Structure formats: structure tokens, C-alpha cells
Simulated assay, not measured.
Amino acid sequence: MTDHLGNIESVARAICARQLAVQTDAAEVAALVERFWRVAAALLEAGLIGDDKEISHSVEQGEAAWAD
């Protein structure tokens, strides 16, 4: 495990905030990050997303990551 994954919550929150900022009003980003960062953490732990990329994956793979 690399050092940047040692604190998965902060990494997941940052990824989530970055992705949401593109499509969401800035005033809503913090609340949405609070709501969805766990999804980003599950995808990150499963290797389906990274700090700088999202790996193409199926809905089933995303659901499996969330279930773990």
C-alpha cells in the first residue's frame, strides 16, 4: 500500500470534491462530499479510481466494491 492511501478518507474526500466541483454549484460541494465520500473510498480501495484517474469499470464492479 502506498503512503497516499494510508489516509483513504482524505484521499477519497479530495477525489470526490474534485469530481463534484466540475458539475455542482460550489456552495453545495461540501455537503455532497460529506454524503458521497464513502463511495469514492470504496472505489479507491477496489482500485477502480485513483488520485488522478478513473478506471473504466462496470456497474457490477462498482456495486461489488461498495458491498465490500
Rank of each mutant, 00 (worst) to 15 (best):
E28Q: 15
V33Q: 02
G6Y: 04
R18F: 04
G47T: 06
A21N: 05
V39H: 14
E34G: 12
D68K: 15
R18K: 14
Q61S: 10
V11N: 03
N7D: 15
R18Y: 06
G6I: 07
R13I: 01
F36D: 11
D25V: 05
G50M: 03
R18E: 10
L43V: 00
R13K: 15
A27V: 06
R18W: 04
E45H: 04
A64Q: 13
E28C: 09
A17L: 03
E34Y: 06
D25S: 10
W37I: 00
V33R: 00
A64N: 10
E28F: 11
K53H: 14
A42Q: 07
A46I: 01
I15W: 13
Q19T: 08
H57K: 04
D25M: 06
G47A: 07
H4N: 13
A17Q: 14
L44Y: 06
G47C: 07
A26C: 01
V29L: 07
A26H: 07
M1F: 03
L32S: 08
H4D: 15
G62K: 04
R35T: 10
V11R: 13
H57A: 03
A64I: 02
V33P: 01
W37H: 01
D52I: 02
A12D: 02
E45K: 13
I8G: 15
W66P: 00
V59L: 13
D25F: 04
L20R: 04
S56F: 05
Q19K: 15
E63S: 06
A27F: 01
L5C: 05
A65I: 00
R38V: 04
I55L: 12
A14I: 00
V59R: 15
L20T: 03
Q19W: 08
A14T: 11
G50H: 11
A41S: 12
A40C: 08
